[in-house]
Nucleic acid binder design. Structure first.
Lengths: 154, 154
DNA sequence: CACAATTAAGTTGCACACAACCCAATGGCG
DNA sequence: CGCCATTGGGTTGTGTGCAACTTAATTGTG
């Protein structure tokens, strides 16, 4: 019995099959977002804002450009988001002296303090997934590879 | 040697570890979206609009409510989306005679014709993922289970 | 039957994402 | 040195997602 490959599937079935994989990804991403929404409400952060804070907690002061590289986001998304984080008081922005085009962001005192309060959150989320450590790692790796391939063919 | 579980990981590491799984999902979803964006441009559809058309092609006329159940979306998202699909001419909406609260949507002639033109798209997408059939199926199942667990704890 | 609770859509407001722009600063290159 | 292409941020416009609310129709219950 031959192994079934993509080429053996008729177009008709494909409309259904692929509906499953991309949609599943889409749905899972939004489900995660929902869990984070409630988990982060106390901290006054949205999920994308939380991702930015994670990057800043880990790397300290960073130019907008590099934040975008870490998170796969462009200035069109980051500029207003950082402005909101600044309005909330978690982040400071300033023009780089070395390169006047560049703007760097860094956590304020309140932003750094927030890190302590956020420490418990990721564990609760990880437990909500019901996945083991290995499973998480494997899934993460597969998804990252997938992203790379998709970005390459875009 | 004991197997390492979630409980053995210190909070500190979690801020990094968890950054991986949910963010990977988030990024992969957006990468998919990007590939679809270019693939669907010719058809005049966005990716969520395409998902709605997939459902309507498969099930024919459906109440908004049931479309939402298939796609995990509520009326707040679907109402304007369906209005745009109606404006483009791919979908017709009408109040149900049996239940005046309900509104059903179905493909127009143009909407049905679009299906033929869309037949090739999913295969190209699936090939762009670089995944085998089994891998796609396994990934889909794992993501669906993940979504169920996340929704349950929200 | 009357009436409160529920249900289905729709609307409003907010926050991403991202394409398509714009502007100012920088860097090359002749 | 002068000029143009490139680069980093920002703005605008469109389309989701989703919470919170509104409206109208239906259902359930006394």
């Amino acid at each position: 019995m031959e192994k079934k490959t993509l080429r053996d599937v008729p177009d008709e079935d494909f409309l259904r099959l692929e509906h499953q994989i991309c949609f599943s990804l889409h749905a899972a991403s939004r489900a995660f977002n929902g869990v984070y929404r409630t988990a982060l409400k106390d901290l006054g952060l949205t999920y994308p804002q939380y991702l930015v804070m994670l990057v800043l907690w880990e790397h300290g002061e960073l130019p907008v450009k590099q934040i975008g590289e870490h998170l796969r986001l462009d200035s069109g998304t980051l500029s207003p988001l950082l402005k909101r984080l600044e309005a909330t008081g978690y982040v400071e922005r300033r023009r780089s002296a070395a390169d006047e085009r560049s703007v760097t962001a860094r956590p304020t005192a309140a932003g750094s303090a927030l890190r302590e309060r956020a420490l418990g959150t990721p564990r609760r989320i990880a437990e909500a997934t019901g996945l083991t450590l290995e499973r998480i790692r494997a899934l993460r790796q597969e998804l990252d590879e997938l992203t790379t391939r998709l970005d390459a063919s875009a």
